[in-house]
Amino acid sequence: MSTTLLEAVRRYTDAQPGDSPFVTAIKGFFILRSAHAKPPAHLLFKPALCIVVQGAKWALFGDRHVDYGPGQALLVSVEMPALGRVVQASADAPYLGLIIEFDLAVMRAVLEQMDAPPQAGGQVTGGVVLTEFDGPLADCALRMVRLLDTPQAISMLYPAIMREICYWLLSGPHGNTVASMALGNNHAQHIVSAIHALRDRYAETVSINALASIAQLSPSAFHRQFKLLTSMTPLQYQKQLRLLEARRLMLSEAANVETAAFRVGYESASQFSREYARLFGAPPRRDIAALPAGAASLQGLL
């Protein structure tokens, strides 16, 4: 990873009040910092590049474990819940990370203008790819961090940087995966449509048959390809969405346990508490009381 990028991110975070994550003036661009290793955190990953500038972390998507360190990034192509943990950080060398959410409209526009565009893959593959983050992409990230010093220039200059990021991703080693995400015309996109339906109706009882119909697949094929893309079953995916939303309600809206359970689709508060403790490691009240100030800002942030 470029030492210049490291210095720029370190300088930016040194000047910021409050705690990480830092929501920047560029929409969809976040900067993370931690001076120590952290316990695992449940988050909702969105389609984005999740870059490690310094330190190291891991992420667990269903049954798939991914380790990544300086100069590496996760290319996340579909929204999914996951468990993440910073494992290498110190006061002298804090963990530093960047999140760049994708603008699919820009990506499609760039794809259409390429002389030799990559072809969208025809088969469903995993929704997360580990990639190297260096060269032109690291240069784009550096210019994004520097652009934060002149917020009045963001609306003029940032679109060009995003176009360049899309170009390098599409022309890089994972161009087919990125093209599939941008075009939305392959088998994976049918699964994504079902994921969106599951996300929008997470508090309802949704049958596998209904989701399979949205995905234009048989129930058995849908179940198999859903797990291939997300590394979890539809039921596991929905349960994690429900519990993440319930946690957000208790953190951000001060909802009590019973209200949160009902709003995310549970009929039994005791069943909700059991499943909540199984996922987060403690019953709802104890978990919420133990979370640090500012934890609410992490809910839904990759």
Rank of each mutant, 00 (worst) to 15 (best):
A82W: 00
G84Y: 04
V86Y: 02
V86A: 10
V87G: 15
A89G: 14
D92L: 15
A93H: 14
A93D: 03
P94Y: 12
Y95M: 07
Y95D: 01
Y95N: 00
L96N: 08
L96Y: 04
L98V: 04
L98I: 04
I99K: 00
I99T: 03
I100H: 11
I100D: 08
E101H: 02
D103N: 10
D103F: 06
V106W: 02
V106H: 10
V106R: 08
M107D: 06
M107Q: 12
M107N: 02
R108F: 03
R108K: 11
V110R: 04
V110G: 02
E112A: 15
E112F: 13
D115S: 13
D115F: 00
D115V: 04
A116W: 15
P117W: 03
Q119S: 13
Q119Y: 05
G121D: 07
G121E: 10
Q123D: 15
V124T: 01
G126W: 14
G127E: 03
G127M: 14
G127P: 13
V128F: 11
V128E: 09
V129F: 11
F133E: 09
F133A: 01
D134K: 07
D134Q: 09
P136C: 09
P136L: 09
A138W: 10
R143N: 07
R143Y: 15
M144N: 04
V145K: 11
L148C: 05
D149G: 02
T150S: 02
T150I: 14
P151Q: 00
P151C: 03
Q152C: 10
A153P: 07
I154L: 04
I154M: 05
I154V: 01
S155C: 14
S155D: 12
M156A: 14
Y158I: 06
P159W: 04
A160T: 05
A160M: 02
I161A: 00
I161K: 05
M162K: 02
R163T: 04
E164C: 12
Y167Q: 06
L169G: 07
P173V: 14
P173R: 01
N176L: 13
V178N: 03
V178L: 15
A179F: 06
S180Q: 07
G184T: 06
N185M: 12
N186P: 08
H187V: 15
H187S: 05
H187I: 15
A188H: 12
Q189N: 06
Q189I: 01
I191R: 12
I191P: 05
I191S: 10
I191M: 15
I191T: 11
V192T: 13
V192S: 03
S193M: 08
A194S: 06
I195N: 11
I195G: 14
I195H: 02
H196I: 12
A197V: 08
A197K: 00
